[in-house]
Design a protein around this nucleic acid. Structure first.
Lengths: 315, 315
DNA sequence: CTGAAAGCGCTTACAG
DNA sequence: CTGAAAGCGCTTACAG
């Protein structure tokens, strides 16, 4: 042993892989690393995997999925984490078919009980709480600015928003699609507040609150409202987001949002992954139903949404 | 071939690795993915590596470097990109000793001609241009807010700042260390503008411009100046940063900064990496000198630094 | 030009 | 309990 250490011997993990069939490599597929929510996700996931002695092979989905799948399979990854919100489910299916454990992050399978494991926050409940907060604080013309229509995150958030409105016997005042992109979101907002003639619309024709499908867009929307349209946030328009990205807490924004419990989510991802790895070696044939973990986030009240009164009535 | 495809055959890359000695895996080590500059770096690098048919194995340096090095070596990565600014150079040396090509990103070896390849922006020149811009626009009390003292990026930027001041026959008005962390930077700024008694210092005792070692800290500094200390940026205090992270362009900040040419930098990283891989297979013994690629960035003038006058004198 | 064999560096079942 | 052999799935030099 001493000699081996002195000679600088390191076991070759690829050789080990050949005989054990385990690579200890997890493939992680991201769609947009430019979304402010994912850097921290990636950092935490990497740290946790490292701590477990596993490695993270990073892929960015850029449309050419075929190639990506090929790589994933050829490297015999032990498991795959799919965090690409808008990613077509073809990829997930192909991986599962190849017998590789898949965990969907912040995304749920669009086909019913497809057998995929998934981890997400209770999106609908979060959006419901945000919307109810706005209703409770006297907002009456509430708009929803959607992410991508086909993203499960957006669908749940939209549904939660609509549900809260229905409970409050209110209708949605305006609806637009931002596709989870800052520039598109800003375009939608301009359309809401500025008429075709380039003049500002009357206040009563404009939303007094905007439920934005994620923080990324919400921050961009705040910029446009304040610096381009000259509106006060939250005095004239309230904005709420979803995720609680680091930037949401910055003094310039102080965004009211719904916090996704990222560390817990990561733990769940790891649990699902390792559970599958064990089950796989135990009895490879028994295919368990996909387990959908839904975690509870938290309403994070900051300053971007107007509150009825700072001095609360004494009980 | 048809049959193979029908059966879903995929070559096992680990087996190939065993016989060829090439893994087509590049190890990437990051210190802080929470720095706003790195997500895009990682995204672009991943895309480029994927395009070349290589894979990216991601590591986050969390102090326990020994373990990290072990993993890197055991997975027989073909090359390593070290983007961890404050990372101790032990790691780089150990990798080089093990015969793995290393490219330093945004960082230069602290030991002279250590044989490492590196890619960076001309940091000193950038800081010089930023500082000169401030001088040319009538700023007289210029402070430098440093990153980590031992980071080569910071050393070069500080030197560039001091050089421009010397050229303008000015002295540095104040100096503080933010360690590339937003909260530390904010603490330094508070100390500059607020006395021990908690009262604001007289204007003439405070900087009228701050050269911040990176955008991450510069944005936090702007927040503190505006929202905590009630100062106008740029009217009362100018702030400039370095990197040109996506957030620097946000309407709330409009940060004047020095743009690092990220796509070009990535290209250089890939070139250095592939060149070494070829050289390695050609004659493994000839150890070439480290090549230090220094690219030119660009002064990005926005609104966070006061300009003398919007109407320029006609020539 | 085609095809069988050796070898890459491990693990593990098996023989002694 | 120890030690030699077979096998994981490729590549490549070599024999036919």
């Amino acid at each position: 042993m001493k000699v081996a250490a002195d000679l600088g011997y390191r076991p070759n993990l690829h050789a080990r892989t050949l005989s054990t069939g385990r690579t200890r490599i997890i493939g992680v597929v991201l769609a947009h690393l430019d979304n402010l929510f994912y850097p921290r996700f990636l950092q935490l996931l990497t740290e946790r995997l490292q701590a477990e002695g596993m490695q993270l092979l990073l892929f960015v989905a850029d449309g050419r999925q075929g190639n990506l799948l090929e790589q994933l399979l050829q490297y015999r990854v032990d498991g795959i984490v799919l965090a690409a919100t808008t990613l077509h489910s073809e990829l997930a299916k192909a991986c599962a078919q190849a017998g590789i454990p898949v965990v969907l992050f912040n995304r749920v399978a669009d086909t019913q009980d497809s057998g995929f494991h998934s981890v997400q926050t209770n999106q609908a409940e979060g959006a419901r709480q945000l919307t109810r907060f706005l209703l409770d604080n006297d907002h009456r013309r509430i708009a929803y600015l959607a992410g991508s229509q086909d993203a499960s995150t957006n669908q749940a958030r939209e549904q939660g928003c609509r549900q809260a409105l229905a409970e409050g016997r209110r209708r949605l005042f305006a609806y637009g699609e931002g596709d989870y992109r800052a520039d598109r979101a800003q375009g939608v907002v301009r359309g809401w507040y500025v008429g075709d003639d380039g003049a500002r619309r009357p206040v009563s024709d404009c939303p007094d609150a905007i439920v934005v499908a994620d923080d990324q867009m919400a921050l961009a929307v705040m910029d446009t409202l304040r610096h381009e349209l000259g509106l006060q946030v939250p005095e004239q328009v309230s904005v709420v987001g979803f995720d609680d990205v680091p930037q949401a807490a910055w003094a310039a924004y102080q965004l009211t949002t719904y916090t996704q419990p990222l560390p817990e989510m990561i733990e769940s991802v790891l649990q699902l992954l390792t559970a599958q790895l064990k089950a796989q070696s135990a009895d490879a044939k028994r295919k368990p139903r996909g387990k959908a973990v839904v975690l509870t986030g938290q309403l994070q009240i900051r300053q971007s949404a107007r509150q009825r009164s700072t001095t609360r009535p004494r009980r």
